[in-house]
Amino acid sequence: MSEGKLVKDVMLGIFEYPHIPYWFSIEQAIKVVKASFIHVQKQLDPLAVLVFDEKYNLLGTVTLKDILRGLEPSFLKQPAKAQVLEEEKTGLAIVWDSLFTQESKKLAQKPVSEIMVPAKHFVDPSDPVTKAAYLMIHFDLPVLPVIEDKKKFVGIVRMVEVFDAISEELIKE
């Protein structure tokens, strides 16, 4: 697929996504998500916020899942809970009601640096889209940063464009 699409053909600009510094609290991150995506109904799935340091270097990304995971009370983080029988789940109804209220308010004051997914994997604008696909699949990444010349953060690749580019190659005769 030498003539296949490159990362630069499918990436989005970084200003499509909101930026926050690592010292912002989870609560501030939630407000950013609401103001940037939910209230303006801008659908840029997966919704992600980019986290930077004092010198505007990308540190990582925070998605809705990371935020919810950060707010989840510690007592629920038991691997055994998935084994609960169907009928017993209804017995948990009262717990569900208060699940994200008490402890979560305190947890929301934690800095986002504690919940973000560190940016360890990158692609270059001139890399093939297939490399982006490989990294996304193997490291379970919903968005992938695009770094030019190993230092300048220039864009974001999402799975939807990667899928589109690769599937297009496959189905065309």
């Binding site: 930026h19 940037s36 004092e54 010198k55």
Partner: peptide, 21 residues
């Protein structure tokens, strides 16, 4: 000590007169 890009949520957006996004 810091130079970076952030979003102006809350009071900041009013003081700057721009949307929070």
């Amino acid at each position: 000590i810091a130079k970076t890009v952030i979003m102006p949520v809350g009071e900041l957006s009013k003081e700057l007169g721009i949307p929070e996004n």
